[in-house]
């Protein structure tokens, strides 16, 4: 038996005549057009969109993910361990990380020396947040305030990412580093 896999529209004669429905559709769009046009002509704004950056919206959705935050440990160090997962998963190749070895902190021997996000490339997909194994990068409700005429100016560095809205990580508390990492007998 043949199975219909799509939702076959049940169209009556009126719909199948098409022309009247077309006219109805045109009336709808036309009325919207005229309404908005009237607003424009009477100097009320006829659009929901804004002139960015002259106008900024204030009612962003709480789900809006506009800017990145690098979270900090309790001691103020960056939580990122420079594993490059975010940079690897980033579909826009917008993240670049320079790592450094820090044996003074044996629990976190690898740390970022530089952490750069290219906001001219970022597509705000949030993959970096999902890929992060340490909850070190987050996106928060904000707009990336980086309009500019120079692509090179649209890089956000580690200082900015950590400090524009400092965040501690409430979910994950690291144990204080066990100082000597010699073998612990059972």
């Amino acid at each position: 038996m043949r199975k219909d896999y799509w939702n076959k529209p049940e169209m009556g004669l009126w719909e199948r005549l098409y022309i009247f429905e077309v006219i109805r559709g045109l009336c709808i769009t036309g009325s919207v057009f005229l309404g908005n046009m009237w607003k424009w002509l009477t100097f009320r704004k006829g659009a929901l969109t804004a002139y960015y950056p002259e106008e900024l919206r204030s009612d962003y959705s709480p789900n809006n993910r506009g800017r990145h935050v690098l979270t900090q440990r309790d001691n103020g160090q960056v939580q990122c361990v420079s594993c490059n997962m975010c940079a690897t998963v980033c579909p826009a190749y917008a993240i670049e990380i320079l790592s450094t070895a820090n044996f003074a902190d044996p629990c976190h021997p690898k740390a970022p020396e530089r952490f750069e996000i290219d906001y001219s490339r970022c597509i705000f997909c949030g993959f970096c947040v999902e890929a992060c194994p340490e909850d070190a990068i987050r996106m928060v409700k904000e707009v990336p305030d980086f309009p500019g005429f120079d692509r090179d100016r649209m890089w956000a560095g580690m200082d900015l990412l950590m400090n524009w809205r400092p965040m501690r990580d409430p979910a994950k508390h690291y144990p204080t580093p066990q100082a000597p990492l010699r073998e612990v007998p059972e």
């Binding site: 919207v32 908005n36 424009w40 006829g46 659009a47 929901l48 969109t49 804004a50 002139y51």
Partner: peptide, 13 residues
């Protein structure tokens, strides 16, 4: 412009 006005947008500006 017309499509913008129809769609509650601003359009080319």
């Amino acid at each position: 412009k017309q499509s913008a006005v129809m769609a509650d947008r601003i359009g080319a500006n």
